[in-house]
Write a protein that binds this DNA or RNA. Structure first.
Lengths: 240, 240
DNA sequence: AAGTGGTCTAGACCACTTC
DNA sequence: AAGTGGTCTAGACCACTTC
């Protein structure tokens, strides 16, 4: 266990136990160095983690303070960022929810100009096109329109597409998903989506348009994912 | 100018000029130390900034790589995170767009249980309730339902509410907005919103539910903001 | 003037990947 | 074995806030 992780974890547990209370000033860094027997830069790194988790605030010249947050928001931290890249299957891991998939289309096509632009391949290059409805306990949650260059994700089979594509990429190909660039909008379902998602025509969808990168910097996915409005929430913490 | 900022800026400009190309490996840290005449930890901090901006990827044991991104995405970086806390007025600063506001309601009420819970005040405490439609060049963009404890934001006047509340908080009260915790969903407009936002009943809205914190850790705002669907996009970059 | 957190260094040691 | 980035230290110096 890394030192800064241990310190961050300990301070976080003190906040959640009420030992450090909302709006209270935390001990100064030099005191924390003594308490934990670590250097200043290690304390700083631990505090920076707590800032990015939305738990504390730092002010140069004045000190660090616990945010006025509810205990429920502390543990686990406000959003489970670690699952934002896990994919649909990963999202429901260990939740006891049964995930199922309806494959509407799985084909290899030549990239349209728009898809080629987003995937950064040439317009004539071959890409997989996959359209799937993802369900939780049998209830449709989202519909995905996914494009992947066959050169980056070779050997994808119908069985993989019925299950977890990320599972295939990580376990079979040995690649690691690294980051996603997303934009989010509200949209209405198309006629086709109405039946596939089993929603009324007055139900809005949250559309996430994203490109996803591997650990080696290569772009392997462009996808548009449309979530049923009343069944999905996206979390975000911004800090100055 | 801080050293790590200078280094980050220089590497970023080399990426945008094509000197470092997509998927190319960057010089190793020890070389960058020599090139810029700074220590390893300063290089690391600069590279970490580029990772969080979505431009590069780091792999322990193998090196750092430029992501396969389009030049247009590089400069300015993928989303202007710095404006995510600027408020509606700040968002349009220096864009030449004329921002206007329609105040539907501005009152002091006793916090309902829900609002008290979100604002972390007692249910009987007084809070401002402000409902406004915000327009850009006369076109309605969003409707805001805002709650603020009068104890944290004293002296708010009708004039402030017609303009920028954040301007009042920062310039008159001398407080600084620090961070926001948000959740995002897709919703349909109410009958009232149809007329206020001048949209059809088939236009979805992007709802952002947020609490906002000051630099001293105090919670000063709970707001629900509903953006017209085809006129708003929210950006996000996730990294493992 | 005193106290806060932020930047930066030189260098030791470590975890991981590649060969 | 060699090369990569990551963690950590002790300490200098700095920017900013508070009194």
């Amino acid at each position: 266990m890394l030192k800064y992780e241990m310190v961050a974890r300990d301070i976080q547990s003190k906040i959640s136990r009420g030992e450090y209370r909302p709006n209270e000033q935390l001990p100064v860094m030099s005191d924390l160095c003594e308490t934990y027997g670590v250097s200043k830069i290690t304390i700083k790194k631990a505090m920076d983690m707590l800032v990015s988790r939305g738990l504390i605030i730092k002010r140069r010249g004045s000190g660090s303070f616990v945010k006025n947050i509810a205990v429920e928001e502390i543990n686990p931290p406000l959003q489970d960022m670690s699952r934002q890249l896990a994919g649909f299957t990963g999202e429901y891991l260990d939740t006891g929810v049964e995930v199922s998939t309806i494959v509407h289309e799985f084909s290899v096509i030549q990239a349209t100009p728009k898809v080629a632009g987003r995937l950064r391949v040439r317009p004539e290059d071959f890409v997989y096109y996959i359209c799937r409805t993802r369900c939780a306990d049998g209830v449709p949650q989202e519909i995905e329109y996914t494009y992947m260059p066959i050169s980056v994700v070779p050997g994808l089979s119908y069985e993989d597409v019925q299950g977890s594509i990320y599972g295939y990429i990580e376990r079979t190909l040995g690649l690691k998903v690294y980051s996603a660039h997303r934009s989010i909008r509200a949209v209405m379902p198309t006629a086709e989506e109405l039946t596939r998602l089993k929603v009324g025509r007055d139900v809005p969808l949250l559309e996430i348009d994203q490109v996803v990168y591997l650990e080696d910097g290569r772009l392997f996915e462009y996808s548009i994912c449309r979530h049923v409005g009343d069944r999905f929430t996206f979390f975000s913490i911004s800090t100055n």
